[in-house]
Design a protein around this nucleic acid. Structure first.
Lengths: 186, 186
DNA sequence: CGCCAAGTTGAAAGGTCTCAACGCTAGTGG
DNA sequence: CCACTAGCGTTGAGACCTTTCAACTTGGCG
């Protein structure tokens, strides 16, 4: 089966035989799910929020490919973008410290939310958003433990870089400092 | 410019502003280089051996796309495979120990070499091959330091899992144990 | 009100990194 | 022919960061 996400968030994970898990992708509204041209996906997908999907079968996918000229092209471009994102994530996983990982994560979420959610946000207003996932899932995403993620959140909070309301709501107090803490690539 | 690799190995890297580097891909003979539909690649490419390329311009690429019906489709499938490989690598970078990383790396190279190089190898013969890259590059690939990579090679050698002739030539003595040391995904 | 899951915090253990010294090999020039 | 040098690789010791294990707190919900 294939699907497009209408609303909600889906995580793509890979797991080692002893249970260690790594999130290899987060898919948001309008993103595609499934592995074309293969019988099975090399990863598992799991909803992290309530979701609405638009599912269709392999057959229908093939019909779309053959009948809509631009369809496969668009899929191709999306896949190229996903590959770029994966590369960026490899840099994070391989070379960044826990502090940088968490800061980068917050920036990514802020960016995605900003692009979608709060169009009417006033410039200058501190950016605020809700994390779509739990600490455990963030840890699996960043290649860290829950405790380390929690400690880094606390550090950023104490340093007045972010504010927290409950454990899900994040307010970016100092975007410049968050940016620097994330150590973007050259 | 775009290119296909005729022979040799190319590494794709991303770098942080302070110089930390991560190899995000290794491209071998017959693989494609370049980022379609974007003015620039989000990574840099560097030859790690003497290479032969077949280069062509953006224009020619576009002509290939429009004139050869199956061309873009094949590119798409290759990209999907690269994405799968990237996901596998994210699991390695985020969740595996140094020991497992090095073992996984050796397995990957052995597999790639086996598929291409020594077709006439007798079953049962210990698999032998030359590493295409230096310790420093392996370290950048695995998200480790040179020293840690070196230590893990030594451990595998002492444990009789592999043998080394010089620093480039590797002989796999115990494929089963190497497999286990690599902790493949479920 | 009390329970359970999620999150936080502390202390100790462990793994990887850093810094430093040393070894090996190949190319160079005397 | 051979010391010499430079680059790559190995090894050791200590520092540092993340993990592990444990206790504790918070928040949502019956």
């Amino acid at each position: 089966y294939f699907a497009n996400i209408i609303s909600g968030v889906v995580k793509l994970t890979k797991t080692l035989s002893d249970g260690r898990q790594q999130v290899v992708g987060l898919q948001f509204a309008s993103d595609f799910l499934g592995r074309p041209y293969r019988p099975t996906s090399p990863y598992s997908a799991e909803a992290v929020t309530r979701i609405h999907l638009c599912t269709y079968e392999k057959r229908q996918f093939e019909r779309l490919v053959s009948e809509m000229p631009g369809f496969e092209h668009r899929m191709f471009e999306n896949t190229l973008d996903e590959l770029d994102a994966a590369h960026e994530w490899m840099l994070l996983l391989g070379r960044k410290s826990a502090q940088e990982k968490v800061a980068s994560f917050l920036q990514m979420v802020a960016h995605r939310i900003d692009a979608v959610g709060c169009k009417g946000r006033l410039p200058g207003t501190p950016l605020q958003f809700d994390l779509p996932i739990t600490r455990a899932e963030i840890a699996d995403f960043l290649g860290l433990t829950i405790e380390t993620v929690s400690r880094q959140f606390s550090k950023l909070k104490v340093g007045k870089v972010i504010g927290l309301e409950g454990s899900r709501t994040v307010i970016v107090l100092d975007q410049a400092r968050l940016q620097r803490a994330a150590s973007a690539s050259e």
